[in-house]
Write a protein that binds this DNA or RNA. Structure first.
Lengths: 236, 236
DNA sequence: GCAAACTTCTGGTCTATACCAATCAGCCAG
DNA sequence: CTGGCTGATTGGTATAGACCAGAAGTTTGC
């Protein structure tokens, strides 16, 4: 092979991980150990590990080490099914932590919903887990008129379920935007990963069946933890 | 700031790029020049550049240097509009190069379309450009019965247009899958970028209005060159 | 028995340097 | 003026070593 050494290393690591996944219990040996095992430098070794990270095979958490990434979560952003539902449907364990509840303006949300920039919102910030791994943080910006006492009531349950059951809102129209990104220092910190980690940003503007604005949603996912899947029928 | 130096560097580079974009004509100065300008090493400098690359602000081409990335292409994978159409609609110049035309089996396509593994396909491999930058490579796997002489006819035009006009196929049902990826050595080479560059993989299985399989589509995009946008109406 | 303090390990960052291979610009020959 | 050659430039890769701060594990002190 005339390939770069770090690419060969990537392949060797891939098979090594494959064979020892069970015995390592998801956590790779220390970088210094691996570097010595392959008789190379930590710099080169890390280059190879970063490749595998880009593929979504492994990831790192805090400063605790490298871990083997679980299967991606299949996610359909066009459907109403709550996070908890479809995580469970895939045999995984969901969890949600509420990070912030406040009333605030947020011009990006206002613009996406066609409201004036000084429109106040009810802001819910939460972190979501799959099998105890934090996989996304999101900010929800809800139009106050649509859900008056939301901030007093809310305690981590499904927002869309709440909107439907308590206020009778049926979410009918939505506009979705997806962009790959590098996680901002804040998002990264809240997800316990290094700043600049690859992520996927999903934004949704949601209206009811009369095109009244309901909610704007900003999600920041770890890039390796989801697979977006959309099923469409009917000619367009 | 107690942040890491390379993160400060990232910010300084960001403003530097902002201010000098016009004068540099899209191409950044050499790494060695930048490293000296900031009184640091190329290694650290490259770490900062990689951050900006992750954000999609800059990219590199071959070994020619770092370039400022153009605005992302807005793309709706749920619509029929051909690549050429929506690239032009956004005021950009599209181009297509056909890389391969052949008949072959391809089990992943067969499975996605619900056909036996040994189903033969007509394979079109092409590279697509926006303003002379290669932004994606794709493989199209067309069921031969639906478009008999395709391989003889095809010369780079819109495939969906051809299917509609020549064979009267109206694409009605589709199932779409999107996953972030690291570009394979082959895909990377065909896009003139380094192996392992961040990409976005979009796969589509397409059926007609009687749910007969028509075509399977594997796209590999540069991660920084698109923004996925979907508009949905109607309750689901 | 438990919490606090300390030590070790580990990933994250950074410096300095070197060599290779692709690219590019300029020169030279036809 | 053109086409091929050549040498300087530049990004890509790699080595070696160092220090820091957070995490984890161990010991100490009450």
């Amino acid at each position: 092979m005339s390939d770069a050494y770090y690419l060969q290393l990537t392949e060797q690591l891939r098979t090594l991980i494959d064979q020892n996944a069970a015995q390592w219990e998801g956590k790779l040996p220390a970088e210094r150990v691996l570097a010595e095992h392959f008789a190379t430098t930590r710099v080169t070794l890390r280059q190879a590990l970063s490749q595998l990270e880009g593929e979504g095979l492994i990831h790192r958490s805090n400063r605790r080490g490298w871990f083997i990434s679980p299967a991606r979560l299949v996610y359909d952003p066009t459907r109403d099914a709550g996070f908890n539902d479809y995580v469970r449907a895939q045999g995984r364990q969901p969890r949600t932590a509420v990070l912030k509840l406040e009333a605030r303006v947020h011009p990006p949300a206002a613009r996406a919903l066609g409201l004036p920039d000084d429109q106040p919102f009810q802001h819910i910030r939460r972190r979501r887990y799959v099998d105890d791994r934090a996989v996304l943080v999101e900010s929800l910006w809800v139009v106050p008129e649509r859900a008056p006492e939301l901030l007093d009531i809310y305690a981590g349950q499904s927002l869309w379920g709440l909107l439907r059951e308590r206020w009778g809102h049926y979410l009918a129209n939505r506009s979705i935007r997806m962009v790959s990104e590098a996680l901002s220092p804040l998002d990264a910190e809240e997800l316990f990963v290094a700043p600049g980690t690859a992520g996927l940003n999903i934004n949704r503007a949601i209206f009811d069946d009369q095109r009244r604005p309901i909610e704007y949603d900003e999600e920041h996912w770890l890039h390796d933890s989801l697979c977006i899947s959309v099923e469409l029928s009917g000619q367009r």
